[in-house]
């Protein structure tokens, strides 16, 4: 793991994580009339080093083990907490982010902060240790979610040994279903992300699949299919339909040529740029069509391992031909 992204992740969390997520909720409190002797027992039994002082539920101060030690040294064991407590405890709001607490810790040099809600009621207590623990938990949760996402998908390949392994994904596209336009490409995009494909490659596949999916919706009168074949070195996308077919393939490929009706243009498509876009994203493209039979568009996008782009799961296959 490189160190820099880890660092920014923590920075991000400090700003995102609310104090209520990391604070201790069951706060042990004492009343202003509690004696120093009773306080000593409370701190000892609960193994804590300080406690907020509540007067009928209202926060009036805080008393720490240092205050207790001073009282013990002076033999002042029977006076009430009220006489020894700090009256203006430093508080933070439960909804504020952890960064606010970090600021207050360094500003006031205190060991604990009292957490209050907007009405000023005490809802929790926070130490530096709570923040560290909360951040570590959040990071490990995040990391775990990422792990699960990536590796569950790749497990399919781990035990499979063959001379050539590929994964075939097929999506159906309904004719003229403009509302659902993009759902097939969206699913394909997510699948590639889960397989650990590089963002640039995912984007090229998503854009070309989306343009071709829209073409199927606009033109193919019985709908069609999107087929993605994934191999360690490349992705092949095939779009097939059963008509009406393109009379002049050459012409269909020229930028700006379109047979789409006006209502499609009003929806932001059909300007005759789709096939050109696909061509720009692809490493190779082949368009075949026969009027009355259908159209088949095939594009290939190569992964670029020299740039660190590869399908790790497929690449791991030890039988890979050399």
């Amino acid at each position: 793991m490189p160190e820099v992204p880890q660092f920014t992740k923590i920075q991000e969390l400090i700003y995102e994580l609310p104090i209520e997520r990391v604070m201790k909720k069951n706060v042990i409190t004492v009343s202003p009339e509690t004696s120093i002797l009773e306080l000593k027992e409370t701190l000892r039994i609960n193994r804590i080093s300080g406690a907020p002082v509540l007067d009928n539920g209202r926060l009036v101060g805080i008393i720490s083990i240092e205050d207790l030690l001073k009282a013990l040294l002076e033999g002042d064991l029977h006076s009430p907490v009220r006489k020894r407590m700090t009256t203006h405890p430093i508080t933070v709001l439960e909804k504020e982010s952890v960064v606010e607490a970090v600021k207050k810790f360094s500003q006031h040099k205190v060991g604990r902060l009292l957490v209050v809600n907007e009405q000023g009621d005490l809802v929790g207590i926070l130490t530096g240790g709570d923040i560290t623990r909360g951040l570590l938990e959040a990071i490990s949760l995040d990391y775990h979610a990422e792990e699960v996402r990536r590796y569950r998908a790749s497990h399919i390949f781990e035990d499979i040994v063959s001379d050539q392994t590929s994964l075939l994904l097929k999506y159906k596209v309904q004719a003229h279903d403009f509302k659902s336009g993009g759902t097939a490409s969206s699913k394909l995009k997510r699948a590639l992300e889960r397989l650990g494909c590089a963002p640039d490659t995912v984007r090229r596949v998503a854009i070309s699949a989306y343009e071709a999916e829209m073409n199927l919706i606009i033109h193919a009168d019985q709908g069609g299919e999107v087929i993605a074949e994934l191999r360690p070195e490349r992705i092949r996308l095939t779009f097939v339909d059963r008509g009406p077919g393109i009379p002049d393939v050459e012409k269909a490929l020229s930028p700006g040529f379109s047979t789409a009706p006006n209502w499609i243009r009003e929806l932001g498509f059909g300007a005759g740029m789709g096939l050109n876009n696909i061509k720009r994203c692809a490493d190779s493209m082949k368009l075949e069509s026969k009027v009355g039979h259908g159209t088949r568009l095939e594009i290939i996008i190569y992964l670029r391992p020299e740039l660190g782009e590869e399908f790790n799961p497929l690449k791991r296959n030890p039988q890979e031909s050399s």
């Binding site: 403009f178 509302k179 336009g181 993009g182 490409s185 969206s186 995009k189 963002p199 984007r203 998503a206 854009i207 699949a209 989306y210 829209m214 929806l267 932001g268 498509f269």
Partner: peptide, 21 residues
């Protein structure tokens, strides 16, 4: 990638476009 899109097109396809790109 990462750009802001200004458009007058309010259908689902503008959202899909942002997703794909």
């Amino acid at each position: 990638p990462g750009s802001l899109l200004i458009t007058g097109l309010v259908n689902l396809q503008s959202i899909r476009t942002a997703e794909m790109a």
